[in-house]
Design a protein around this nucleic acid. Structure first.
Lengths: 230, 230
DNA sequence: CGTATGGATTGACTTAAGTCAACGACAACG
DNA sequence: CGTTGTCGTTGACTTAAGTCAATCCATACG
């Protein structure tokens, strides 16, 4: 059995696919490995298939002329990326880079289109994945334009907590510089906001461990987007 | 023949669908009409199908606590909206409101899922539509976070020009207040930026008619996101 | 024909967050 | 054990864009 059969058949994208199909699919997949900070593809590159991360962590991001980066997604094992050009043609809309040593499977476009054509369940899975992406983008745009940095940060921390069993102590799985890039700000500002929120006894910060002290306060901040007091 | 058969079979979403299917689909569609400023659905509403605009103009938007609005899309005839919950379940991710007297067809979820299941071409069309939405969102996030207001405005004007036969005189099809909402700013700021760009002889503004005087300058501004002077 | 009404503009002021630069902490490594 | 580099923090300053308020303009309307 293929080493990634279990991972692949457990992903949202390929779930419900018969074992035969999974093995067939894995037969045509190309395994790729990337060092930390290695580019996987660049915005504008011609695309010929999609990737599924199997190991490590991948950032998808845009870069401004001046070099500021806006992170769109950070993907871990099991998550597909680079799927947009498979269906709308053309080129990748953003850059992809491994932020730690990573591995991914690459699936050529034609095999996927064939699979989807013959397999309505996979088509619906793919539509579900893309719908969730769209949903997350609307939230991200909302956060970026309708909330200030402390509001975005509070919303992020609450999201992390809900992902991590609603534990009161969350652990950042990325560097603070990357978090700043995801929140649409810069490390200096993030640092100041963490300090302010600690002053207000909303949180307690120890490296990448952040203790959420006042869930109601954080929720209010995440909702209103405005910090109540200094 | 159904009055909207031509419009529907010409949309990206349903193109390539056999006439029989189109008529069947139109048989189950519900026609809806909306006055100017009437809500079509609200963020958080339980969804049971998607809409295709047939007439008028629809804005899809988010609202902040303080009432500021961020417009995500403005859709005209032939464009589907409200499709996200059809595939990922749950509720609408944003509000939809008619900005002029409008009409739309509503397609119940089950009929669509059935159609897609039995019709791979439609599945691929839907995937193409959603891919393009994702692509546009990445551009929108890039503009909102990596460019300043003049850069976003220049990019918008150039996009309008390319949509309108590359004419040097573009016509805004929405109010300046709505444009501000789409660009992630407020009418006052938009007004000032138009004035600044006019001062720099980049454009000439006469109501909703905007003459693009310096395409290279506008491109530079749209790229860099920074206004060169004044 | 005067007057509401919504859209747009302008001015004075405030503020969130970016820039630039220095410094601190900590781990990895020779 | 000091050196080097990465990551994070802090301070002083600048700036883009938001707020609030007044005004303007055009069109619609009684």
């Amino acid at each position: 059995m293929h080493p990634y059969a279990e991972l692949i058949s457990g992903t949202l994208l390929f779930e419900g696919l018969a074992d035969g199909h999974v093995n067939e699919l894995l037969g045509i997949a190309v395994e790729k490995a990337y060092e930390k900070n290695e580019m996987i593809f660049m915005e504008g590159d011609r695309a010929s298939g999609l990737y599924v991360s199997t190991d490590g962590m991948i950032k998808i991001y845009k870069l401004s002329q001046e070099g500021k980066e806006q992170i769109l997604h950070i993907f871990g094992p099991g998550e597909p990326f680079g799927e947009v050009p498979v269906f709308s043609g053309g080129t990748f809309p953003a850059h992809a880079e491994a932020i730690v040593k990573s591995r991914a499977l690459f699936f050529p476009r034609d095999a996927l289109v064939g699979l989807i054509t013959g397999n309505p369940a996979i088509a619906l899975n793919m539509l579900a994945v893309m719908s969730m992406r769209l949903r997350r983008f609307t939230v991200q745009i909302e956060n970026l334009t309708l909330k200030e940095v402390p509001g975005r940060l509070a919303a992020y921390l609450l999201m992390l907590a809900s992902e991590q069993n609603n534990n009161k102590v969350v652990r950042l799985n990325i560097s603070k510089a990357h978090l700043a890039g995801f929140l649409g700000t810069i490390p200096e500002t993030l640092s100041r906001m963490l300090a302010r929120m600690a002053n207000l006894n909303l949180i307690h910060v120890a490296g990448r461990e952040i203790k959420l002290l006042d869930m109601d306060g954080l929720s209010a901040l995440a909702e209103s987007g405005k910090i109540v007091d200094l």
